[in-house]
Design a protein around this nucleic acid. Structure first.
Lengths: 193, 193
DNA sequence: AATTTACACTAGCGCTTGCTTGGTTATGAT
DNA sequence: ATCATAACCAAGCAAGCGCTAGTGTAAATT
């Protein structure tokens, strides 16, 4: 029923659920585990969410929504050159992958556990985000910054970025900014010192 | 106990399990579903495998082993130029992602359901495969074909390739060969008609 | 003062889970 | 004929699962 996370309590519960879903996976995370981590009893959980599925949906929605917002904000302040916009999108993606890591890992790995309704609802959100990418990459193609097929490149780039959740270490020497720079350098033919 | 799939029967069971694991996910796939699909009763399943985990391990091992074999074969027959070797690796990766699709999807999505022992055993296999990539990409860097950091590029490229299981349609107009070509074109600064 | 709302509790129902046990059948070697 | 082995089955156990029903209580609303 509650599609959006209105109450701060529910938002907090969603955050905790995200962490558990990452640690254990959705199916192995029991309502009793969730409740214990939340400091309540398992029955009380169903006051906040209709069922277990809705918790998963809330987690993914939160992450995807934030990613979209951050990307739009980044595009609004990065300047107008195709390269700057490309870089802004990549950096925003990597940063949201860091700050909302749990939610995004859940979105990537547990998407298939969503039921049909939730999958459709969240699908639209995700499509809106990917449309942003295709727009920016389309601009970069027109500007002659990169070459190739718009959809193919979008998918290759998103694949490379999403894969970072597997190996990226936030404690390591490389910043998201740094990573974004290297990725763009890999894509653009122009030589660089 | 049986780490390798010796008997043809076990190999067939592994194939069936892979399909179910993709359709339903590992946790949601019950031993009863597996048995039914295999044409036996659930109890009989434990004659072939020690426990459910071992089935998962067998599926992933099969896929990773095939990928490694195919990549080595491709490198052995592709010529010696850095570009040819890069292309051969990419094509081999995409082709094994197609022919052993189920096993690879399971490896990508259900890796975390492996216990410590299996994760270590299969980790070595995967490392061997990724080492091949790093070697080929190292060669391409030395040849001046591409620029950047060897490990970073390997991971970006593997991410882009693995992501294809999300969107690639084998019935569509693009062949694995075609996709490999486009990927390499995206990476290499040299202009092309 | 009376009522509603929000949030939590206890207790447990009905069902499914992975896996075990103990025994049967078919095949093929000795 | 005897034995060994692989492959299977029927039956079911102990544990855990998502979720519900009914209740208590403090704060907010009327």
């Amino acid at each position: 029923m509650n599609v959006v996370n209105e109450s701060p309590r529910r938002k907090e519960l969603t955050r905790i659920a995200a962490q558990l879903f990452v640690q254990e996976g959705f199916d192995r995370t029991t309502v009793r585990m969730l409740a214990r981590e939340m400091g309540i009893k398992s029955g009380s959980l169903f006051h906040h969410f209709d069922d277990k599925q809705e918790i998963l949906c809330a987690v993914i929605e939160e992450g995807t929504h934030n990613a979209l917002t951050l990307a739009q904000a980044a595009l609004a302040t990065c300047g107008e050159s195709a390269e700057a916009r490309l870089h802004a999108m990549a950096r925003a993606h990597l940063e949201t992958l860091l700050t909302d890591r749990n939610a995004h890992v859940v979105a990537l790995y547990e998407w298939r556990r969503l039921d049909e309704g939730a999958r459709q609802h969240l699908g639209h959100l995700r499509d809106a985000y990917e449309a942003l990418w295709q727009e920016v990459i389309g601009d970069a193609l027109e500007a002659g910054l990169i070459r190739g097929d718009r959809f193919l490149i979008s998918r290759f780039v998103l694949g490379a970025l999403n894969w970072t959740v597997r190996w990226y270490d936030p404690e390591g020497p490389r910043s998201p900014e740094d990573l974004a720079h290297e990725l763009i350098a890999m894509l653009t033919p122009q030589g660089r010192a």
